[in-house]
């Protein structure tokens, strides 16, 4: 082999670019190696998360006697072991959708408030206050939700049942405290407000001033300025902000685990207590899980991982594409 290298290198070395790129200083090479290495380390980390989770998940699913996707039960300790993610998938998606429906319009409103309505001197402190919502740890949202919000929502639940019960969704067929998917959705909405707000706000602030001033010059009211120049410009930004929020809501653990009273039933009556989400199920079942039980939970975690990966990836792609076309970042 030693005989091959000296023959091989001289013709292969592309002479012009090499001296221009580096003067051969050792420090530069080491530093480049270190920083590039940590970048590669991150990619490896992501890959190994996928590989390790898939491996353990495959172990669990191969022992599952039920269908992993359609079984309405979680009993990996049973004989035969039966578990499936149908209820968890349903609960995760429903609670996140409720959160989105509540949070996105409000977040857009707050973002508009900070970018276009608030007195200029107040805008920065107000933005900071909204960011503080993001700094509160989720477990504190959890106990606040369970010990404070749940009793306070009783009245609202009665209302919804009374006035909107005919929609089926808001019909409350079981009595019991409001430890329901709906309450979880409200709590998740509060938790994802800051991220949706801050991303939307950034986009709204990037609207070319010319567009807004043109609209104002034509005699538009403030709302017409927003409708004609701000919202069309910010639409894709708001969409990706909402998807980032969705990603948060899907994976939220502690707030759901403290508030929800879980059950393995699928019910479209979102006010009824019961249901479950991936993360909540992992938190609740982990303590008593045996070896197979843990692998089963890892399998459900893998589904959650893929779900959040898709949602976040899509959101980032939308943001990235927007950057290229808008010219706002030029």
């Amino acid at each position: 082999m030693a005989s091959i290298t000296p023959i091989d290198t001289p013709p292969a070395s592309p002479a012009p670019p090499k001296p221009a790129k580096s003067t051969g200083r050792a420090g530069d090479k080491i530093f480049l190696g270190l920083s590039q290495g940590s970048g590669i380390l991150l990619l490896l980390l992501m890959a190994s998360i996928a590989v390790f989770l898939s491996y353990r998940a495959a172990l669990a699913v191969s022992k599952d006697e039920g269908n992993f996707f359609t079984t309405f039960d979680w009993n990996p300790a049973g004989d035969p072991p039966v578990f499936g993610i149908a209820v968890l998938l349903f609960g995760t998606v429903v609670s996140s959708i409720i959160a989105m429906v509540i949070a996105v319009p409000i977040a857009v409103g707050i973002a508009l408030f900070i970018s276009h309505y608030a007195p200029r001197r107040l805008a920065a402190p107000l933005a900071y206050v909204v960011d503080l919502l993001a700094a509160v740890p989720s477990i504190i949202y959890g106990i606040w939700g369970a010990l404070f919000l749940v009793p306070y929502l009783e009245g609202l639940n009665l209302w919804l049942d009374q006035f909107l019960g005919w929609t089926y969704i808001f019909e409350k067929t079981e009595v019991g405290v409001a430890r329901s998917l709906f309450t979880v959705g409200i709590l998740l909405a509060i938790m994802i407000l800051p991220i949706v707000t801050s991303v939307s706000r950034e986009v709204f602030l990037q609207v070319p001033k010319m567009n807004e001033e043109a609209a104002l010059a034509l005699g538009a009211t403030r709302w017409e300025v927003i409708r004609l120049s701000v919202l069309p410009f910010g639409r894709s930004g708001v969409i990706s902000a909402s998807m980032l929020g969705l990603g948060r809501a899907l994976g939220e653990t502690m707030a759901v685990a403290t508030v929800l009273s879980p059950s393995f039933l699928i019910s479209m009556h979102v006010l009824n207590p019961g249901g479950g989400t991936f993360a909540q199920n992992i938190a609740a079942k982990f303590d008593e899980a045996n070896q197979l039980g843990r692998d089963a939970l890892i399998a459900s975690g893998l589904v959650l991982f893929v779900l959040t990966l898709l949602v976040n990836g899509a959101a980032r792609l939308i943001i990235a594409r927007r950057k290229e076309y808008s010219g706002a970042n030029a």
Partner: peptide, 28 residues
Amino acid sequence: RAVTFFVDVMTGIPSIVAGLFILSIMLM
């Protein structure tokens, strides 16, 4: 570009999934 994209995606990893990843290493 790949690092940028995956750093962004990593920001969205639920904390429980990060826990499960280390757990699967621990189990092995």
